[in-house]
Amino acid sequence: MQADHALGLFDGQLKAQNRSEHTLIAYHNDLVQFFDFAALESGVEPEQLHVDQVDIYIVRSFLGQMTDRGLERKSMARKLSALRAFFKFLCKEGILQKNPVQRIATPKLGRKLPHFLSIEELNRLTQAPDCTTLLGARDQVILELLYGSGLRVSELANLNRQDIESDSFLLRVRGKGNKERIIPLTRYALEAIRNYLAMREDNQEALLLNYQGTRLSVRSIRRILDRLALESGLSHHLHPHMLRHSYATHLLDGGADLRSVQELLGHAKLSSTQIYTHLTKERLREVYEQSHPRAKKM
């Protein structure tokens, strides 16, 4: 099968799995870059490359070239993740019999602690929208759900009206792999949702709409957050995941157990949640060193 045809099938599979727009674009671009390299190595034009022409030596040469170009290990790991997912899909579908990436080791990464907002910063941020206007009320919903319920930005964009269980203060969320989970709604979030929907004069099922009356995209949510960060005086770029990080960190700071936070975040593995314990330990160390007389440096 030609590589570009196989890539089209793989893109369709990722969309069916409800993967984020960012992942779709990143994986697609990484694979196109790899195909160009593999075609050059195989002595054919990219559109003539077949997936069964790729072997472990081509994969290793590609990764070697990326290393020579000074590519960061995090970016290298992402490209390798795209290749793993792609060739695993081809083998599962019976398009390939042998996976050329199976014996390639993933480069070890130094794990960075996620950034999160302080309570004071969050208070300033949630006071930024003008809730007397339709779009301001919508922006308030965005903030209350990203921080109050720890949603991924893709989960937020895909929410529908019927996902809100007002009587029980619960929210039905479809996460990675189209897995559904039920998480609590804060009183602030529910009030923001009710205020926003009361201003709407449409029958659209999407919870969040843009100014044209269609579903709000992930990219638009990112732009809205950047604007709100600027309006509230935050000195740094506000990524949607920063609000999710803040949600998890503040839960653990408040005494929540790790397993509960894992379930609320929709993490498949506990190790994905454990990074937040490192974050709180680092913060405790800073508080201790700044506050205890025995900890202060001479």
Rank of each mutant, 00 (worst) to 15 (best):
S154G: 04
A157D: 01
Y288S: 06
L90R: 00
L31C: 08
H278W: 12
P129R: 00
L63M: 13
R200C: 03
G175W: 01
H241Q: 12
L190C: 05
E155Q: 04
R194A: 12
H236E: 12
L228I: 07
Q140P: 03
R283F: 01
D4F: 15
Q97A: 13
F169I: 10
N18G: 08
E289F: 07
Q53C: 08
D226R: 12
G12L: 07
A256E: 12
T277L: 14
L225M: 10
F34Q: 02
R161E: 05
L146A: 06
F35K: 03
L125G: 02
G255F: 10
D163T: 03
D30R: 02
I164K: 01
I193S: 08
R222Y: 11
M76D: 01
K92F: 10
D167T: 09
Q48N: 15
L83N: 04
K88H: 14
R200G: 06
Q274Y: 10
H278I: 13
R219Q: 10
V54L: 02
L279P: 14
S232Q: 08
E45R: 15
L234T: 01
I221Y: 03
H245T: 14
F169P: 00
A77N: 05
V261C: 14
T67G: 14
F35G: 07
A82K: 05
R124I: 02
Y188H: 09
G110L: 06
G266T: 15
R285N: 14
A77P: 04
R69G: 13
A39H: 06
I56P: 00
R73N: 15
H241Y: 10
E180S: 06
M76P: 00
H239A: 09
K74F: 06
I182E: 14
N203E: 13
V153P: 00
K74G: 04
Q17S: 09
T133Y: 00
